[in-house]
């Protein structure tokens, strides 16, 4: 296992298109629910323990070698908003394109053939981590971190929030992020015996509902 490979995969400059998505922050800023570093932190904490936990467990399970089709269906069932399902598949397709060049692997080739329209991003992330020789814990950390780093950097642009403050939010969330990744890996290991029902299903009603409203905006800065 290479620790540096994790840095490559988790780097915000990894060319997988994540910068075009705000993880629901754009809609929350417009609704007046994110107005400061404090409310950004509250937003990120809620997202981490819901969508972040689910993404983290999906990524860990994919890295453990669970059948991607089963995980992709589990992601659909945990993502009622069609706007969010579309965004997750688009991000998955972009990540897969980058990962296949970065860490060529037969498993990634099969995934591309089976999901021409893209698989849910965390599933691709888990398989990319596997192709990079990383562990399920790494995939889980990567997914959990992305669930909060996207909204934090987007809010810097949306609110002209001080980037130092936004980064401090991420640093304060780090211990919780470790715990989320740990419980995600624990759930992912149970999938082999118990099936996909063992995956967490934590949901954030406002993220789902607001994503539908956001997708209908005529002009927006972020795709989701």
């Amino acid at each position: 296992m290479s620790r540096a490979a994790l840095l490559v995969l988790a780097d915000g400059r990894f060319p997988a298109g994540g910068h075009a998505h705000s993880g629901g922050a754009e809609a929350a800023v417009k609704a007046g629910r994110i107005t400061s570093a404090a409310s950004l932190e509250d937003f990120c904490r809620g997202r981490l323990h819901t969508a972040g936990l689910v993404a983290s467990a999906l990524a860990a399970a994919a890295a453990l070698g669970v059948e991607p089709r089963e995980l992709d269906a589990a992601a659909d069932a945990r993502t009622p908003s069609p706007a969010l399902r579309t965004a997750a598949r688009r991000l998955g397709r972009q990540l897969l394109r980058a990962a296949r060049v970065t860490w060529p692997s037969a498993e990634l080739d099969v995934l591309a053939r089976e999901f021409p329209k893209g698989a849910h991003q965390p599933v691709v992330l888990g398989l990319a981590a596997r192709a990079a020789g990383l562990a399920p814990e790494d995939a889980a950390h990567c997914a959990a971190y992305e669930s909060v780093s996207g909204p934090a950097t987007a809010t810097v642009r949306l609110l002209s929030l001080d980037p130092f403050d936004a980064t401090a939010v991420l640093a304060r969330l780090a211990p919780e992020l470790d715990r989320v990744a740990d419980s995600a890996v624990e759930a992912a290991r149970r999938v082999a015996d118990e099936g996909a029902d063992a995956l967490p299903a934590a949901s954030a009603p406002l993220l789902e509902v607001m994503a539908e409203a956001h997708a209908a905006w005529p002009v927006r800065l972020f795709a989701s």
Binding site: G24, A28, A31, R33, I34, S39, D42, F43, C44, R45, G46, R47, L48, H49, T50, E176, A204, P205, L206, L207
Partner: peptide, 8 residues
């Protein structure tokens, strides 16, 4: 955490 916050 965050259950009553802006995301949930």
């Amino acid at each position: 955490g965050g259950w009553d916050g802006p995301a949930v």
